[in-house]
Amino acid sequence: MPNAVEVKNLSKAYGNIKAVDDISFDVAENEIFALIGPNGAGKSTTLRILATVLTLSDGGASIYGLDVRKQADKVRQIISYLPEEAGAYKNLSGISYLRFMAALFSDEKNKQKEYIDMAVLICGLGNRLKDKVKTYSKGMTRKLLLARTVMTRPRLAILDEPTSGLDVINALEIRKIVRDLSLQGMAVLLSSHNMLEIEFLSHRLAIIDKGKIHDIGTAGQLKEEYSASNLEEVFMKLTINK
């Protein structure tokens, strides 16, 4: 059985600027794997390549053995991607948005209903789903979008900064959703610049800065290796020393 994600010597350049520079990592089935690093570290670019939105410049990447470049169409059928600070169509109601997205993933009415029911359950927005998305708070939109991302039970969920800009309560709820989904068999690849959050959420993580991965391991392993009390300290020691 191939890994959920396999990334080998992946690079992405915009002209002379290397946004991602020769990185390698893998994500196992059922695993929550996090890319952590500051803004501009290359996290989003990596996730966008794996979500088949951007093309890679060099190296290779596969999702459950499917090449993200050559088999992008097949990859799109088993993944689901939540972009950072994404919005929804403002003139649609929450439920219309879910219906629209469900219809893109399946032509079967039963399947679509199944997806929508699941999303309604996960987002917990109740009657507010009938309101237009433009009336939602940031937290409500994020919950709607997270529910949309996972409602099709993708084999891999790619979540870019899933809790960015949210208050403590909303962030906690989203973390719980992610954990539950992983327990149900979904692999999750996420990014965050909130290192403390990742410490509690992910099984393993990679520390990325200036397009390069500096180290990979569990939070415990990394803290022990660098004699640090938290991941922020690990990050500082890793990046400043290099």
């Binding site: 088949t52 939105v53 994404a86 403002k90």
Partner: peptide, 9 residues
Amino acid sequence: NKTLETLLS
């Protein structure tokens, strides 16, 4: 709104 990224993935 990044809805295009969602659509194209």
